[in-house]
Design a protein around this nucleic acid. Structure first.
Ligand SMILES: [Mn+2]
Ligand SMILES: [Mn+2]
Ligand SMILES: [Zn+2]
Ligand SMILES: [Zn+2]
Lengths: 137, 137
DNA sequence: ATTCTAAATGATATTCATTATTATTTAAGA
DNA sequence: TCTTAAATAATAATGAATATCATTTAGAAT
């Protein structure tokens, strides 16, 4: 069994493949996208298992759940980063800026009565693809 | 009829009350909270109307939809601001920092192939109330 | 290696937030 | 006041997410 962490849980094939998929796939897949991806290796996996494990592994800290426009997505990128979100197509890209992260956390230190442990900035706008689609047809 | 905007739409009592509620209520109410609030004035309003109008008015730019932990919430605070989100109870407070907003937007200008028009930072941690609850019982 | 068992899975049913439908009502312009 | 497209209320339908439960399995004990 590959060692994928030290959490107190069974390392089932289903969990290993879900985590592997999210580590390889550098996007922010939905439940269905994870399900379709993992099914290529584990053809008999149940969607209920995918749901349960995505939630479970997020609680264990092995994945992160993100939510955009009412759509639940998952990722395994634990390098602090921000997001570029397209208002048109809903695409969500990572955007890394240690500079912004440090600045934000410094400001956060001054907030009273709220212990902050993490932060993330969402930038909203129109992606390159959608801009081109608007210009053309 | 109170003038609540110039958008191309009918200013029904239902819409007027929904917007009024969200402008008075300085939180981030859920659909049910808006429904309960508005029902005090319009006892016969349908929940489907609340759903439709919250979505409709957000698209018209008169409200904003925010999503935390899979829960959809609404607000009418158009002063650019950030959010403090409690990991424990899910509470979402506003946090205004023009300094952080300006800094973030300046960084955003350098991003290629993505036209950014707005941004918001989410700070995650534990709120005062939940901290006290942990210490006590 | 074999046995054991709590935990996990697969299949399916259930829940419930959200959307669709449609007959009736109404805002707003003529 | 009349007209009518748009909006509402009531309700049905949809579908993402969760619950249930019989069966399987990871991992520990023997
Ligand atoms: Mn990301
Ligand atoms: Mn807010
Ligand atoms: Zn786009
Ligand atoms: Zn809290």
């Amino acid at each position: 069994m590959d060692n994928i962490g030290e959490a107190d849980m069974k390392y089932t094939n289903q969990r290993v493949e879900i985590i592997a998929f999210l580590r390889e796939h550098k996007g922010h897949p939905t439940v269905d996208e994870v399900y379709d991806g993992v099914r290529k290796k584990l053809t008999r996996i149940s969607k209920a298992t995918v749901y349960k494990n995505l939630k479970f592994l997020s609680q264990k800290g092995l994945l992160e759940e993100v939510n955009v426009k009412g759509v639940t997505r998952f990722e395994a990128n634990f390098v602090p980063h921000h997001h570029l979100i397209c208002r048109k197509c809903g695409k969500m890209d990572d955007f890394q800026s240690e500079e912004l992260f440090d600045y934000s956390m410094k400001i956060a230190e001054d907030i009273e009565g709220f212990s902050i442990d993490s932060m993330s900035t969402n930038f909203y706008g129109i992606c390159k693809q959608c801009k081109e689609d608007t210009i053309n047809g």
